[in-house]
Amino acid sequence: MGLLDAKISKHNVLVTSVDNVMNWARLSSLWPMGFGLACCAIEMMATNASNYDLERFGIFPRASPRQSDLMIVAGTVTMKMAERVVRLYEQMPEPRYVLSMGSCSNCGGPYWKHGYHVLKGVDRIIPVDVYVPGCPPRPESLIGGLMKIQELIRMEQIGISRAEALKKLEEKSMDPSQLIQEARKSAKAS
C-alpha cells in the first residue's frame, strides 16, 4: 500500500476506497488453517519456521477452521479424508480461499493411475483458487502461491464476483506464450 511507509503524523485523514482498505486488511493477515495432510505439510511447517518465516507476511496458522480464511490443502487427499476436507471447508467463514499445495492435491500426483484410495485432485470436491505445483513444492513456491492469493484478494471489489475477479487477474498477468516465442527467436538467431 505504501501508506505505512510514508510518515503519517497525528490527525491525518486518508482518503481511499473501502475496497482498498478491506483488501489491504485481508491480504496482509491471511490466517491459514493449520491443517497438514502429508509430505507437503512438512514443507508448509518449514515455511512457517525460522528460515522462511511466514509470519512476516502476517500469515499465521490457526488451529480452528472458524478462525481462518485460507485453507492450504497440503498433501494427498484420500477418499476417507475427502468428506472431512469438505466439512472443514464449509466451517470456514467467508471470504475464504483455497490453495492446493503439491501435485497430489492438484491432480493426484504420483497416485494418479493406481491409487484406488486417493482423490485425484482436491478440486473435485472444493473450489480451488491457486494451485502450487511440486512434489513437494519448495517453501519458495508456497510463498509464491500465497502471493498469488494476495493478488487475488487485491482484485476484489464489493459487488464483484470471484469469477470476475479471476478474469481480471488473468487479464492483468502477462501471457507467457509471447515471451517464450521471443526467447525462441533470439535463441535461433544466436
Binding site: 502429508a38 484420500t78 472431512r84 493406481h114 486417493v118
Partner: peptide, 8 residues
C-alpha cells in the same frame, strides 16, 4: 482410527 492418508 487410521487410513486418512492411505495412499496404496
Amino acid at each position: 482410527y487410521l487410513g486418512y492418508l492411505h495412499r496404496c
